[in-house]
């Protein structure tokens, strides 16, 4: 009887450790504390060039993440990329003249959408589109322009 009890305790400890490991993976390792979807509203923006932007890339205001990109598609009529993003529900005071920029975190880091709030009193709601955007900076084009302008100097 004593043996069975010890064995049961051992199994109980094993299951508890396993569940604790799962809990650690989901709480400490993954982004459960961040916004993962669910509640929120959707905004979209059109860009000439989205560079290395990917689905799930963050959307930030002043460096603080307020949402994620949920979909990237291509509008073949006007040759522009359409980026759809989901913003946290409590961030519902984004002015409608906000500019959506594509920035890079660090020199080699991931790309994200940085929002520059405007001064308008009307706010964007579900399904709205940013009126003004600036595209991703393509490093090659920048270098190309620099070399070209050097050449034209006297």
């Amino acid at each position: 009887m004593h043996d069975t009890r010890n064995r049961e305790i051992a199994v109980g400890i094993f299951v508890a450790i396993g569940l604790a490991a799962l809990l650690m993976l989901s709480l400490q390792v993954s982004n459960i504390s961040n916004f993962t979807g669910g509640e929120g509203y959707t905004l979209s923006a059109r860009f000439d060039n989205i560079g290395g932007l990917k689905v799930k890339s963050p959307v930030r205001i002043g460096g603080v993440r307020i949402g994620r990109i949920t979909d990237i598609s291509y509008d073949e009529k006007i040759y522009e990329a359409v980026v759809t993003m989901r913003i946290q529900q409590q961030q519902n005071r984004i002015p409608d003249d906000t500019i959506a920029n594509i920035y890079t975190a660090g020199l080699l880091g991931e790309q994200y959408i940085g929002l520059e709030p405007g001064g308008s009193e009307t706010f964007l709601t579900n399904g709205d589109e940013f009126s003004e955007t600036t595209s991703a900076i393509v490093l090659e084009r920048l270098i190309g322009e620099a070399i070209f302008s050097k050449k034209n100097d006297p």
Partner: peptide, 10 residues
Amino acid sequence: QAHVDLYGDV
């Protein structure tokens, strides 16, 4: 935490 997704990865 920024890059490991609860649903997608864990």
